[in-house]
């Protein structure tokens, strides 16, 4: 080994300061680039593309009487057009994914409230949503203005943006300017075809009320408060959950109902709807695409129990939609 060169402490100090500054600069530059990419829908992630498409739907809607907000359990179980047909109201569904949580739903509701005055706001999220961490990325990626961040601490907001996957997503998107249509005929991302299906390990365990995170209620409470401010009725539906864990999670369901009511929303009785094995789609809390019409109707009936405006306009339609599958209702 050759003899060691020397470096003075002051020289080393300056060198370390430049390293720190360059590191910070690189991180800030990527965060700004990612923020821009996410806001423009340029990121390759399907989730952010989905978000962009849902925002377009909100911007393009001439009138919204009922808005459905939530995650993929909503997107896979409810067809907004069927609800429109059944109720005679203008129903718009803008489901995102579970990654966005209540936080993403809140900001979407804010965007709806900027342009419309819905009578009813329906929130439908996975049954285990109260047990999940606050989705800072959901809050950040859907924010239209600084106030939408609700004073969330900066150190919580930086990690979702300080992520090169988003940047790579943009580079990848640039190579694929023509992307396939995102939504299927029933208004959500198509499920993975049966042949390619590898059942995602889903939330099939019996849920424990002790796992509910009190801090998760904050943004749900803000949804409730916003509904009150705009004069809308706020209805909450638990997304479907697979049997038999669904039935066995009785204590959790009661605690989750209290959690939602504590945030100022009305819980629709009869939810979650427990899914028998044959009704499960590509994830354990996704309704099978072939049964979406039936489950959409079942959920409408559940919501109508607390929001009478969602009752059937013409009784003739009801029988054809629900059939004998009403037995799945709790």
């Amino acid at each position: 080994m050759s003899p060691s060169s020397s470096i003075s402490s002051s020289e080393a100090g300056r060198w370390l300061a430049v390293v720190a500054a360059a590191t910070l600069l690189a991180i800030v530059a990527i965060c700004v680039l990612n923020w821009w990419g996410v806001s423009k829908g340029l990121v390759g992630w399907e989730a952010t593309r989905l978000q962009r498409e849902q925002l377009r739907k909100i911007e393009g809607a001439p009138r919204i009487d009922v808005v459905l907000l939530g995650d993929s359990t909503l997107g896979n179980a409810i067809d907004a057009r069927a609800w429109s047909e059944a109720t005679g109201l203008q129903v718009l569904a803008v489901p995102l994914t579970g990654r966005y949580g209540y936080e993403g739903s809140l900001n979407l509701l804010r965007r709806v409230a900027d342009r419309h005055r819905p009578q009813i706001v329906v929130v439908m999220q996975a049954l285990d949503m109260p047990t999940r961490r606050v989705s800072w990325e959901g809050l950040l990626f859907t924010a239209a203005r600084w106030s939408d961040l609700d004073g969330a601490p900066l150190w919580k907001l930086v990690p979702p943006l300080a992520n090169l996957d988003l940047t790579f997503g943009m580079i990848e998107t640039a190579a694929r300017p023509e992307r396939p249509v995102l939504f299927d005929a029933r208004g959500y991302v198509p499920q993975v075809p049966v042949k390619q299906r590898q059942r995602v390990a889903g939330p099939s365990e019996v849920l424990d009320p002790a796992d509910i995170r009190p801090e998760k209620q904050r943004y749900l409470r803000e949804i409730g408060a916003l509904c009150e401010r705009i004069g809308a009725r706020c209805v909450y539906l638990h997304g479907p959950y697979p049997s038999p864990a669904c039935e066995a999670s009785r204590a959790y369901r009661a605690a989750a109902d209290r959690f939602v009511r504590g945030a100022g929303l009305d819980v629709a009785p009869g939810t979650p709807i427990c899914l028998p094995a044959e009704a499960v789609g590509d994830a354990e809390d996704h309704v099978h695409p072939a049964l979406k019409d039936q489950y959409s109707e079942l959920y409408r009936l559940a919501a109508a129990a607390v929001a009478p405006e969602l009752r059937l306009r013409s009784p003739a339609v009801a029988g054809s939609r629900t059939g004998t599958r009403a037995r799945h209702l709790r």
Binding site: I7, E11, A12, R14, W15, L16, V18, V19, A20, A21, A22, T23, L24, L25, A26, I27, I30, P159, A162, N163, L164, D165, T167
Partner: peptide, 23 residues
């Protein structure tokens, strides 16, 4: 070398590594 240019390069590399810590 403890030069400003190499410090900037090391800082950039460190920054890009920190941005990859999600993976």
């Amino acid at each position: 070398r403890p030069s400003a240019g190499q410090a900037a390069l090391v800082g950039l590399a460190l920054g890009l590594c920190l941005l990859k810590l999600n993976d």
